[in-house]
Each structure stands twice: as structure tokens, then as C-alpha cells.
Design a protein around this nucleic acid. Structure first.
Lengths: 153, 153
DNA sequence: CTGTTTGCAAAAAATTTGCATGTTC
DNA sequence: GAACATGCAAATTTTTTGCAAACAG
């Protein structure tokens, strides 16, 4: 059983345990989220429509809201203002290339510790989204960076 | 000179050093960002329009894009899908109450260390946005939390 | 002066909603 | 069978753009 299938099974049982009805559309959208990684609404829609042409855009919106409401997915903001979503699994950082827009995940023990420390101070941490703006290796090679990339860090 | 005025002066000189023209509208929008903390576009617009009724919504959008392009502000995503902006100052975490939507800033040495560690591994970190979902003290007191707030952390 | 920026209005894009029909449990 | 989910189309909201007039440097 592949990792993606595992997550899909997990989502299915999460839906069941929350008494949310299982429909082909919901499974397809969950699948899109898993397979595509950090898709926008329209990327999810495209993925779903290729496999099940009758699906409506409104269903994608409604399903995404539903999943968010039940904490199944998180929301990221990308440079050009489009919202991207991802399945909430373990705590990680999203690293986005500011040139090509690619997003990859990085796990960091220090981030875990930072949150544990917050919890000890009394902050009721429920979830955490981290978006790091960066330049991926590919783009770094290709692009002569003209303007200075002033880092605030 | 208040902290807000300091930041405003800093923004002004940042604009100048980037050869961006200083206009009353841009200063007003910068002021709104500083005073309001983590405003949405329409909150900025309302703030500005109260002080200078002729200002156009398009100007707010254009100015926000401009500020973003020059790295002056960062973008956060809030629960209900509306985008909020903040002046990029020092590295910090945004803690958002999932009930009232309030956002506060928290500084964390461990987060700094997590990023330094990434840099040592070769990731070209330019910026970092952290959004922690939480429940603020006020809401925690007021609300009997019915559904379980499963934390992924 | 020259090139930029602005406000307005109109256009485009993104998101939400109403409702009849079809589906899940 | 009851309650809920879906697709469609229309409504709403958000964001972008074209352009003449105003403004900053």
C-alpha cells in the first residue's frame, strides 16, 4: 500500500469518524490534495475534472471548506496571491522558491521544540504553518539575481 | 518619536533608497499597515478612506503589491480565506486565535535557530512566515469547546 | 518637464449561494 | 426514506486593468 493510499485511507476514516458522508467527489478531491502536494483550487478542480468530468467547481470549494473545518487540510499563501492547500500531516515547514513557485516540505526538530516551548508558556497551539521564501537550486543556477535579495532573517 | 513613527520613517527611507516615489497615499497605507497590525486590504482601505476620502481601492491594491515586491510587507492567510498583510520587521511568529481571529506576534529564539540550521544545510532562506493557530485566553474563557481540537503538533 | 501615480469605471477572476436532482447511510 | 451532497447557473466579492488627469522629483 503506497503512502498516498495510506493517507487516503486515513482521510476516509477521519471522514467517517466525523460522520461526514463519503462521496466519490470527496475522495477524488482528497486524492488530488495528496497527489498534487500543495495545489490551488483550480489545480484540484483540473485534476478532478480530468477523472470525473461532471464535477463542479462549487463542489471543490465546498469540499475544501469542509476539510478545512475538520482540520484535515491547511492553507498556504503563495506569492502571487493564490491560495494553496495541503493535507495536514506531521509538523513541517514549507519552503517555496520565489522564482518558480515550487514548494517542498522540510521537517525540523528545532521547530518542534519552538512550539513545545510555546506550549509550556501557556499558548494553546493547535496547528502551525510555516512558509519559508527561498530560492531553489535549479533557479539559483539559472538566474543571475539582479536585485538584491535582502533577507530579514 | 513613537515606535510607529520610527517604522514610518524607516519605510519612507526604504522607499527613497529604492527610488520609489513618496506619495501621500503610500504613506497613508504604510501607516495603516503599522497602526492596524495585520490588516486585510479592505481594512487598509477603510483606514485610508477615513483620512483621505478620495483614495481609490485600486491604489491600495497597487501599493500593497509594490510594498510586497520590495519586501516591505509579508502576507498571512487567515481562517476565512481573507489575506492579511503585515510590515516585515524582525522574524517572529504570528499567533492567531481560531475563534476571534485576533493575531499577535511572538518572538522565538528557537525559530531563529531552526532557520540558521536550515541555512547551514544550504537552503537560501530569504524570509519566513509562521502562522500558529491557537485559542486566545479571552476566547478560551468564554467558549466551552464542544468539538475536540485535535492538535497535529 | 518627464515619467509615475492616481481615481474612476469597467473588466476579469475568484468565491459563494439557491435550487432541483441524485446519493449516501 | 431522510438528510445531505451535487451540478448548474446566477449572484457576490475580490482583484486587476485602461485611461485621462494630477503629481513627485
Amino acid at each position: 500500500m503506497s503512502k498516498a493510499d495510506e493517507v487516503l485511507t486515513e482521510i476516509t476514516s477521519l471522514l467517517k469518524s466525523n460522520k461526514i458522508k463519503i462521496t466519490p467527489q470527496r475522495l477524488l478531491i482528497a486524492e488530488a490534495l495528496i497527489k498534487l502536494g500543495h495545489p490551488t483550487i483550480s489545480e484540484i478542480y483540473r485534476y478532478a475534472a480530468e477523472r470525473s468530468p461532471l464535477i463542479g467547481l462549487a463542489t471543490v470549494y465546498r469540499t475544501i471548506h469542509l476539510f478545512k473545518k475538520f482540520g484535515l487540510i491547511g492553507e498556504l499563501t503563495k506569492m502571487r496571491g493564490r491560495t494553496r492547500f495541503e493535507v495536514r500531516n506531521s509538523l513541517h515547514m514549507n519552503v517555496e522558491c520565489i522564482f518558480c513557485g515550487n514548494i517542498t516540505d522540510i521537517h525540523s526538530p528545532l521547530l518542534k521544540r519552538a512550539l513545545s516551548s510555546l506550549k509550556r508558556e501557556g499558548v494553546k497551539v493547535i496547528d502551525c504553518e510555516v512558509l519559508i521564501k527561498s530560492v531553489c537550486d535549479n533557479c539559483h543556477k539559472k538566474i543571475k539575481i539582479a536585485r538584491s535579495l535582502k533577507s530579514v532573517i
